[in-house]
């Protein structure tokens, strides 16, 4: 139910205040931080340890998922395992078996990913089944249709209901920032998800062109920081969509490092969702060790 004023009119929620100019200026400074030598090596290890290695395609098969899991457990000699493997609900059982004796978590998208436009009971059922099949983490999408129509309470209610449905599992809430249209709207979506019990805020599905940007990541860090300051609850951040190079990943790492601090730079509070980023990280590592760029042939793909 929307909040009511004494005369019965629905109260309009207070506008979310964010200004693009300084937000983008600060994000731009942070993405130009320089990582050299040992700092770069250990930051790239952190990127791998915080990575949700992802495959979300209609053509995904058990074979493909098993390959991805093997790669996630042991990306290359001396490189840590990734944080999680992220798949569609139907492939959760495959991933659970493949990751059984590893530290790598199973993440599943749910709630009619990527659009979120199915009846709520269908979406909740999908969530329940993914958790029952062994998913440790659920990546839900918010209902952007309801959000953009101004039905913020419906969005919040849905997040809370999904939160309940995935009891015991980690809930990541995908805002699909590229569809929200403004920084103020992203901030509003962050605040809704934080209040409704998200464990992670996540930028994007990766299924639309416009997704994570440094400024959006900074804005989400600010929302998380403020929530922690007010409630003491430390919500994580997952960046996804379009992060393909080590350089861009390190830019995001700097944003989290200088906004939320190192307490957030652990897999429990920070993730990068990606499918091809790992290749570039491994090649960068090789380049820093040997001085030469390895060709793609020298990185085991899956």
């Amino acid at each position: 139910m929307p909040a009511q004023t004494p005369n019965g009119c629905a109260m309009r929620p207070a506008p979310c205040r964010v200004d693009a100019v300084m937000l983008e200026a600060r994000a731009s400074i942070l993405t130009k931080r320089s990582f050299k030598a040992a700092a770069k090596r250990s930051a790239l290890e952190l990127v791998v340890a915080c990575m949700d290695l992802t495959t979300l395609e209609g053509k995904d098969t058990p074979g493909k998922v098993r390959g991805l899991c093997a790669r996630g457990i042991s990306p290359a000699p001396g490189v840590p395992s990734v944080a999680a493997i992220c798949v569609y609900p139907a492939l959760v059982p495959v991933a659970v078996r493949a990751l059984a004796h590893s530290s790598v978590k199973v993440a599943s998208v749910a709630t009619a990913f990527p659009s979120g436009l199915s009846p709520l009971d269908v979406k909740l059922r999908e969530t329940l089944e993914a958790v029952a099949a062994g998913a440790d983490e659920i990546d839900m999408v918010i209902d952007r249709s309801a959000f953009l129509a101004g039905h913020y309470d419906a969005v919040a209610h849905e997040i809370a209901a999904t939160r309940e449905a995935c009891a015991g599992a980690t809930l990541k809430v995908i805002l699909e920032v590229g569809e929200l249209g403004s920084y103020a709207a992203v901030r509003r979506a962050c605040d809704l998800a934080l209040a409704a019990g998200a464990d992670f805020l996540k930028t994007s599905t990766g299924k639309i062109g416009a997704s994570s940007t440094p400024a959006v990541a900074l804005l989400m860090c600010e929302a998380i920081r403020e929530h922690a300051r007010r409630t003491g609850r430390e919500v994580g951040l997952k960046l996804a969509g379009g992060i393909r190079t080590s350089k861009s990943a390190l830019g995001y790492v700097s944003i989290v490092h200088e906004t939320l601090g190192n307490a957030w730079l652990v897999p429990e509070r920070f993730r990068i969702g990606a499918s091809s980023l790992l290749d570039d990280v491994l090649m960068q590592r090789e380049k820093d060790a040997s001085g030469n760029y390895a060709g793609a042939s020298y990185v085991a793909v899956a």
Binding site: R33, S34, F35, K36, A37, A38, A39, K40, S42, A43, E45, L46, A49, C50, P80, S81, A83, S103, K105, V253, H257, N262, L265, V266, P267, E268
Partner: peptide, 13 residues
């Protein structure tokens, strides 16, 4: 989960 290295920038003169 894996123990991750503490992040710090090294000198980048």
């Amino acid at each position: 989960m894996a123990v991750v290295p503490e992040l710090a920038y090294s000198p980048a003169p």
